[in-house]
Amino acid sequence: MSLRDITRKDFTAARRSRALWAVATLLALLTALIAFGFSGYRLGPEETVIQLFRTMGGMFGLLLPIVALVASYMAIAGERESGGVKFLLGLPNSRRDVFLGKLASRLGVVTAGLVFMFATATVMAVARNGALPVGVVGGMFAVSLLYTSVFVAIAVALSATVAERSRAIAAAVGSYFVLVLLYVIPGVNVALLVRFVHQTLLGFEPNFDLYNAVLFTSPLIAYRKAMNMVVPSDLEQEVLQRPAESYTPPGYLGDEMSLLVFAAWLAVPLAIGYWRFEGADL
């Protein structure tokens, strides 16, 4: 039960952080501004709001990982650097309590932030258009929260394996680059890289099922696929590569697969991070 005390203490501290409030306010203003300025072309009010959240989803794909990483990268590394961990573990807490308590509180922080962002966007959109497509907004919130949680898990796990701020920053930036940017930069992205290795270096016939499967391992791609599950079918986007009109991805690359990708990205980093923290000299 001391887990709850750790979570409570960490959450109280986060709530008092001026920087965190500043960031949350900025993000809420941003979503409000987008919601205010957005206008669909020849769309009814409901369609406009749906289209708005769909568009915001595109931005969230790049933005939410940053929010999660910034909110969590110092979760445990900070305690190790400052020596706070000596109080945490001088009291009757186990390392598991510390790890899970920190994870819980940082999840709480980003959930609050996301609620804040969705609330301002929703209020603004409803005020402008007079329609509230609850299913789509709720669905978008759910997949966005899942996506953000993945990066909180990754950041807390990384944070548990390092003892200094500089390394925690490097790990957070590195993970953003490898898991997000490397999938969207034109010219040097993972899809091209895999294809290059497979086709040019190894001399195989093109296999787009394989390239797409590799692409799908990214949380960002999984997020885009997951959004297809909550928006109306005419707004679904083709996230994977399509070499020809006739190509249809196999069933195991369907939108639902994104949930499994999320689950893997939640479980594996946490397991490794906990294992490393459990064995570390603090």
């Binding site: 203490k9 960490d10 109280t12 501290a13 008092r16 952080s17 900070g78 305690e79 400052s82 020596g83 706070g84 000596k86 109080f87 573990l89 001088g90 009291l91 009757p92 807490n93 186990s94």
Partner: peptide
Amino acid sequence: NPEEIRERVGVLPEGYGFDDPL
């Protein structure tokens, strides 16, 4: 059994920090 020990021990550590705004 570190937890059981910590139940009964009072610790004044070295190199600690009061980092949280509490």
